[in-house]
């Protein structure tokens, strides 16, 4: 091999070394989340296009319209797989970027993501192999069945991650409340401040109860038990808990202001 050729190969290798970390660092969890939103939108649009194609075929059963149903159906299936793939990648990066997530949860999620991304690739091959309406229907049903399998494990563990984060916030509020109360109990004319702290305490207790309920719902996210509904129920409990915590924070903030003013 002459020197010129060797130099060229070295140049290419160096270029690849330079570009590789740039591409890895380019995708953050927030980028991945945006990519998921985009994929979700594309999936909705692809499904609408497929529905339109079926309406056209029903009105005019030509070969051309039949082919359009098959093509838009394949496109819609790919779009839905893109959506799941983008969601899994987002979940993977979300846990990777958060140092506070327990290692066992992190490892479980990352393992499930890897396994499920592999399954998506296999499903793509099946979609590509569809040649007629019958095959399209069969693959569609298969993907619907696999969809829950693909998301349920990661959704369950992702829910547990959110529970962990919400619990940490609730614990912080709890500690702040206790600290402020200790300060206030040493003050004179402290009734108004204690009232604020009592209200904060009540909201913190409510938040903890809702977080606990969310944990119970996420624990039931299994393929056999309507996983997406259970996951959504868990999310709703956490949304209420977030409201409780923001309210508790408001009372703590007011109490803090009163302490500063009267201290």
């Amino acid at each position: 091999m002459d020197l010129k050729k060797k130099s060229f190969i070295t140049l290419i290798v160096l270029m690849m070394m330079l570009l590789q970390p740039m591409t890895v660092y380019a995708l953050s969890a927030s980028d991945a989340k945006q990519a998921w939103y985009d994929a979700k939108q594309e999936s909705v649009e692809a499904q609408a296009e497929h529905r339109d194609a079926k309406v056209e075929w029903a009105a005019d059963k030509t070969d051309e319209n039949n082919q359009k149903v098959i093509d838009t159906g394949k496109y819609a299936l790919h779009a839905s797989l893109n959506e799941v793939e983008a969601w899994l990648i987002w979940k993977d990066l979300e846990v990777e970027e958060n140092p506070e997530i327990p290692n066992d949860l992190k490892e479980n999620i990352q393992e499930d993501v890897d396994v499920n991304l592999g399954k998506i690739d296999a499903l793509r091959v099946e979609v590509d192999g569809v040649e007629n309406r019958f095959e399209l229907g069969v693959v569609f049903l298969k993907i619907v069945g696999n969809y829950f399998e693909l998301v349920s494990d990661v959704a369950r563990n992702s829910g547990f991650v959110w529970v962990h984060i919400a619990n940490e916030k609730a614990d912080t509020l709890d500690e702040y409340e206790t600290t402020l109360r200790t300060v206030v109990e040493g003050m004179e004319n402290n009734e108004a401040i204690l009232e604020k702290l009592d209200l904060a305490r009540s909201d913190i207790e409510d938040a903890k109860e809702n977080i606990n309920n969310a944990n119970g719902e996420y624990g039931q996210v299994h393929i056999q038990e309507k996983p997406l509904i259970k996951f959504s129920n868990g999310n709703n409990y956490l949304r209420i808990a977030r409201g409780n915590m923001i309210s508790a924070h408001g009372y703590l903030n007011e109490a803090y202001g009163l302490i500063v003013r009267e201290g």
Binding site: K40, S43, Q47, G73, S80, E83, W87, G137, F140, I143, V144, Y147, V151, A155, W162, I165, A166, K169, T172, L173, Y176, L228, F231, S232, G234, N235, L238, R239, R242, M245, I246, H249, L252, N253, Y256
Partner: peptide, 23 residues
């Protein structure tokens, strides 16, 4: 500390997963 905690609480998001609509 309180302001930072408020920001973190307001930043908490719990996103549902979409589903495939029927054929």
């Amino acid at each position: 500390d309180l302001d930072r905690l408020k920001e973190e609480l307001e930043g908490l998001e719990f996103e549902d997963v979409g589903g495939l609509s029927g054929d």
